[in-house]
């Protein structure tokens, strides 16, 4: 499959990355090269193959916590790196629902 300009713009939008026209051109070339190359996977017959989403051995299974309050309660630490904060809140440009 090949990637077109509209694909690149849509992907940039979904990724929340603003791109100049020049960058769009450059990424279009790069993405086409890479996508064209990974397309070789189509030659593998995977019809009867189940996907593997993690290389972690299923033998140990998902590990669960018990339901106890063991974390939180350190607001200063949580907001210490915030670019903008006030009165213990994170601040973002006004959002309109």
């Amino acid at each position: 499959m090949s990637v077109d300009i509209d694909n690149v713009k849509k992907i940039a939008k979904l990724s929340k990355i603003s791109l100049s026209e020049n960058e769009i051109e450059k990424f279009l070339t790069d993405l086409n090269q890479i996508i064209g190359w990974v397309d070789q996977l189509t030659e593998v017959d995977t019809e009867k193959v189940a996907p593997t989403f993690s290389s972690f051995g299923a033998e140990e299974g998902i590990k669960k916590r018990s339901d106890v309050i063991s974390d939180g309660g350190y607001r200063e630490d949580v907001i210490s790196n915030a670019p903008k904060s006030e009165e213990g809140f994170f601040l973002v440009p006004k959002v309109i629902d």
Binding site: V78, K84, E86, E87, F89, F90, L91, P93, K94
Partner: peptide
Amino acid sequence: HPSYSYVDL
């Protein structure tokens, strides 16, 4: 706030 939204997690 007039120009910001406050976020509480």
